[in-house]
Nucleic acid binder design. Structure first.
Lengths: 204, 204
DNA sequence: TTTGGCCTCTTTCCATCGTCAAGATTGGCG
DNA sequence: CGCCAATCTTGACGATGGAAAGAGGCCAAA
């Protein structure tokens, strides 16, 4: 009952604790400041304990990436589903969800879309970035029912590139360095609107 | 004259040698595999020698980033200048130069536009990403001479976001994973064309 | 209930890293 | 010609990721 350090062996759910502390640490210090030992420290566990739950540091990072993609697609569909209007509006909604997730988890987002991540998680059924494209592709297909497959593919490229590029540049401080969050949101919406309009116009 | 290891002390131009080996190493191993000691090893110099030319590892990386931005803007203007046609075509040209540089130096490009880089090189007269926006802004201004400042700003956001997002997703393997370089180029050009068309159309 | 096995966690160790301090070497300036 | 400052090396420190070996606790089979 002593509140000092009663828990000795057997943490209970160390795996989840490591995922949680790892995620916080990632956002605090960035990927270069991310340390397995610090994760363990925050979970109040010895530095070698994580090895029993994650084969390596990259394995933990891969788990964070995996969960990130799940959350990201969830955020996108949630935002799109809130809009019951036209397909174009839903396409914008996907972008809003995308950008909101990225803004809330900048370091994780960057990790998810980093060259390093791809060298890591080549396993799994690719529930990652593929799902994002599929979400957009479904709406583009709806908008461009009569267009060729190639036109549709290029419009999906375009839609994804626009929203990804904008939020990426914002997170890096390259766009709107000292703008208010309000102004930034407005600029992001403008980009999404221009994107959706271009997609719609591809139908001739 | 013995070709073994004649050069002992005084490398000659260690700074440049470190920049060169560092750049190669960065592309080979990525930022997470980048090591100051390995840079020194490749320059055939002791592990502490770099300290006399770069205050820290981040200082070397900052130099790489600085040179990267110079090369990137040079590549963009070179490609745009090759085209003497309309402003819209030159806008596409800027994008071609941008993507070509990124494809040729993927790891450096990612470093240049990474959250980590921004924490590093807060010095200097910002000859970095600001120059890129200025290049695009000049052409957009030409195309949208009659538009409001806000419209122009949003079109620059849009132009930059499109080209940045596309090449970024390609480098990460999210777009066109197994496509030929030829096909990828075509898709990139399609994105740039759609982008330029959207900018032009913003003039009403 | 007891006991044996297995999973969890700790301790200890190793190679490597970035950085610092001190010493060795050299080129060039007086 | 000799000395100085710049350049490079050697050695050390603390921190990291990972491997190996041992200690501690849970649970199911007897």
């Amino acid at each position: 009952m002593s509140p000092n350090k009663p828990r000795a062996y057997h943490h209970g759910d160390l795996r989840e604790a490591l995922v949680a502390s790892g995620r916080k640490l990632l956002e605090e210090k960035g990927i270069r400041g991310f340390t397995l030992r610090e994760c363990a420290r925050r979970a109040e566990v010895s530095h070698a304990a994580p090895a029993h739950h994650f084969a390596s540091m990259d394995d933990l990072l891969a788990e964070l990436v995996r969960r990130g993609f799940a959350e990201l697609t969830a955020a996108m569909t949630a935002e799109a589903d809130r809009i019951e209007g036209e397909a174009a509006a839903r396409l914008v909604g996907l972008g809003v969800g995308y950008m909101a997730f990225a803004a809330a988890n900048p370091a994780l987002f960057q990790l998810m879309f980093s060259r390093e991540a791809n060298r890591i998680e080549l396993e799994e059924g690719e529930a990652g970035a593929g799902g994002i494209r599929r979400l957009q592709a479904a709406i583009v297909e709806e908008l461009l029912a009569d267009a060729s497959g190639e036109v549709r593919q290029r419009m999906v490229d375009f839609a994804w590139a626009s929203m990804h590029g904008f939020i990426t540049l914002v997170l890096e401080g390259e766009i709107g360095g000292r703008d208010s969050s309000r102004a930034l949101k407005s600029r992001g919406l403008a980009v999404l609107a221009a994107m959706a309009e271009t997609v719609v116009r591809a139908a001739r």
